[in-house]
Amino acid sequence: MATGGRRGAAAAPLLVAVAALLLGAAGHLYPGEVCPGMDIRNNLTRLHELENCSVIEGHLQILLMFKTRPEDFRDLSFPKLIMITDYLLLFRVYGLESLKDLFPNLTVIRGSRLFFNYALVIFEMVHLKELGLYNLMNITRGSVRIEKNNELCYLATIDWSRILDSVEDNYIVLNKDDNEECGDICPGTAKGKTNCPATVINGQFVERCWTHSHCQKVCPTICKSHGCTAEGLCCHSECLGNCSQPDDPTKCVACRNFYLDGRCVETCPPPYYHFQDWRCVNFSFCQDLHHKCKNSRRQGCHQYVIHNNKCIPECPSGYTMNSSNLLCTPCLGPCPKVCHLLEGEKTIDSVTSAQELRGCTVINGSLIINIRGGNNLAAELEANLGLIEEISGYLKIRRSYALVSLSFFRKLRLIRGETLEIGNYSFYALDNQNLRQLWDWSKHNLTITQGKLFFHYNPKLCLSEIHKMEEVSGTKGRQERNDIALKTNGDQASCENELLKFSYIRTSFDKI
C-alpha cells in the first residue's frame, strides 16, 4: 500500500482533458527560462521544448504516446526543470519506465491550478516501474492521483506527508504495488545497510526511497516546507523545498512566496507586481503582455491589467481597466465587458449561442446573426445582446428569417469595421425574408467608422429604411451602385405612401 494514499474509496472516473512563447529569463536562482504550460502528445517531438525550461508557468501534460519505446527515452533528460506552477499529468506514455532521468531536479509542483483537485496525476502508464522524482520536495496545493499503472512499484516507500501538507485526498490505487509483488529495495538494503531515512506512518517504520538508488530526502521537522541542505541544516524561511546553503534567500532552489532578481522575498516591493503567484514583474512586463494579447485571437491570451499590486489576466467583477495605466478602477454604474472572439468572429444561430455573449459591452471581433427560429426570440436576444455598444469588426445579418427588427441591439452605437466582410463591408444584410426595420432612427444613433453597407434580398425592408441608415451611420456616399439592390429590397412591402385627393359631386333626387 502506498504510504499516505487512500484505498478502496469510491472515486469519480478520471477524465483526461485534452506555445513556446518565453516569458522571460528567471535569473540567477533558476538555471534556465520560464516556459508556458505545455500539452505534449502523440510523439516526442515537442518534448524537446523543455530543454531550457527551469519553470513551467502553467501545467505540463505528457500523454497518448503509443509508439514510443524505452530506448526512445534513454537520452532524454531535462535537468534544468525545477518547478511547475500548476500540475504534472502523465497518461498512456508507452515505453517510459521512470522519471528519474527525465526530470531529475523537479523540486516543486505548486498546484496553482489543479487537474480535478490533483497536482500530480500518473494514470495508465503501462510501462512505468517507478516514479523516480527523487528531488520532489513540495506539492504546495492539491493532491496526488496514481492509478492503474500495472508495473509501478516504489510507492509504499514514499512518505507523501513530507511532500504535501495533507495526504487525506491522495488516491493511489490499482498499481502493481497493490499486489505486494514489488519487493522494493532501498539503497544499501541488499548489503544489509540502512542508507535512507525511515519514518513512521500508520504504525509502520519504513525506509523512504524513490528507487533502488535514490533515497527520499527527509528534512528535520523544524525546517517545515522550506527544505534543508545535504547536511540537514534548514533553508531560509522564504525558500521552498530545498537550498544549497542554509538561511540564505539567494540560495533557495525555489521560493515559498515570490522570486525577485535572484532572491526569494515575502512580497513584491514597489515598483514590482505579483505575477502568477510566484514571481515579481515590473510595469513594462505587464504592459507588454497586455499589448501582445490586445489584437491576438490565441486562446488563453489575456490583456493583463494591474489590481491590488498584482498583474492579473482581467479586472475583477465591479472594476474596469483604465487604459492609460492598466489599473483596475471601480465602475460607475454597470461595468464594461470586452469579449474577445477566439477566431475573430462568432455566429449567433440560437439563443444558446447568444447567451455566451451575455453582459458583453464591447465585441472584439465580428458578429454573424443567422437565426431561423426560436421561442420568445426578441426578448431572449435583447437579454443577451442588448448591452453590446461596440463591435470592432463587422455585423452580418444573414438568412435570419425569424427577425423582424434589429432593435434587440438596443445599445449598439459603434461598428468600427477594423475587419470587413469580403474585404469591403462593415454591415452586411443578406436574404432576411421578414426583416422590416433596422432601428427606430428617431431614437437610435449608430456610427460606422469604416467599410460599406450591403443589402440584398431583404424583400420587406424598404429602401427608405436603408437610406436612413446611410445618413445616420455616416456611410452615405461610400456605397457603390450594386451594394444596395434596388429590386430585391422592399419588393414585397408597401414602401411608397402617396396622399390621394378626392373630389365629389353631391346629387339628390331633384338636383344634379
Rank of each mutant, 00 (worst) to 15 (best):
S317F: 14
S244I: 06
T267R: 03
I109N: 00
F116V: 02
L174S: 14
S213W: 13
R141F: 03
C219N: 00
L120T: 02
F66I: 00
S213I: 08
T189W: 07
R279G: 07
I222S: 13
P270G: 08
N105R: 07
I306A: 08
Q61S: 02
P197A: 06
N282V: 03
V305G: 09
S237K: 07
C293I: 09
L136R: 01
D288E: 12
H59T: 01
N257A: 10
F205G: 08
C311S: 03
T320F: 14
D184C: 11
D39R: 05
L240S: 09
C228K: 02
F66Y: 00
C243K: 00
C153V: 00
P249M: 07
E33S: 14
A119T: 02
I163N: 01
G111W: 03
C209E: 02
L47E: 03
P313A: 14
S324D: 11
L102Y: 02
V173P: 04
E124T: 00
L89G: 00
D177L: 05
G32H: 10
S317N: 04
S284N: 10
L60I: 05
I172G: 01
N52V: 15
C234Y: 00
C335R: 03
E97G: 10
T320A: 12
N105G: 06
R162K: 12
L131K: 00
K100G: 07
G192M: 09
Q303C: 14
L155S: 03
E151Y: 11
N202Q: 12
L327R: 11
V121E: 01
I158N: 01
N138P: 00
C153H: 00
I163H: 04
R263H: 07
E314I: 00
R298F: 06
M137L: 10
H226I: 08
P336R: 07
H274R: 07
D165Y: 09
K251R: 13
Y154A: 03
V121N: 00
N42T: 01
D178F: 06
N309Q: 09
G95N: 08
W210G: 03
G227C: 02
Y154S: 05
D178N: 09
K148L: 14
G300S: 08
L155D: 03
D39M: 05
L81H: 00
S112K: 12
N42F: 00
D178E: 06
N195T: 15
S323K: 05
I146R: 02
R279V: 05
L289A: 08
E124H: 00
H127D: 09
D247T: 06
K67C: 02
L240A: 09
L90V: 04
V144M: 05
S213N: 11
K191N: 15
W160M: 04
A254K: 05
P336D: 07
W160P: 00
V121I: 06
E130S: 11
N43R: 13
L240I: 09
I40R: 00
C239I: 01
T140D: 07
T229P: 09
K191H: 08
C215M: 07
I306W: 01
I82S: 08
F116P: 00
V93I: 06
T157W: 13
L128K: 00
Q216F: 05
T267Y: 13
L136M: 00
K294V: 03
E97A: 12
V200M: 10
Y154P: 02
D277K: 06
N242E: 12
L64P: 00
S323I: 09
P336M: 09
H290A: 04
H307V: 06
L47S: 12
E49A: 09
V253G: 11
F275I: 01
I158L: 11
C228W: 01
G333P: 13
N43S: 08
C335M: 01
Q299H: 05
A156H: 14
G95H: 09
H212S: 11
C280Y: 00
L155P: 02
C35S: 00
F258Q: 13
D184P: 02
V121T: 07
R141K: 02
D288F: 05
L64M: 02
D261F: 12
M83T: 09
H307I: 07
D248M: 04
I62Y: 00
H302G: 12
G188D: 07
P187A: 13
N138E: 00
C311F: 12
V144E: 00
V200C: 14
E314H: 03
Y154L: 02
D277F: 03
F285H: 13
T250L: 09
D247R: 11
Q216N: 00
C215A: 04
S323Y: 07
C255Y: 02
H48G: 01
P334D: 09
M38S: 09
E97L: 11
M65C: 03
L60N: 00
G32L: 05
K310G: 15
E97F: 13
C255G: 01
S161P: 06
P79V: 04
L44T: 08
T140W: 05
N150E: 02
L81M: 13
N202V: 04
S324E: 04
C223T: 00
A156G: 08
I122Q: 01
N308W: 11
I139D: 00
S112P: 00
W278L: 01
V108C: 08
E51I: 15
Q216T: 05
A198E: 15
C255D: 00
G183P: 11
T85P: 00
Q61N: 02
C228M: 01
I158V: 07
V218R: 07
Q303K: 10
E33T: 07
H127T: 15
E130K: 13
Q216I: 03
G32F: 10
F103Y: 01
K80I: 08
F115V: 01
P270E: 10
G300E: 04
D261Y: 15
K176S: 02
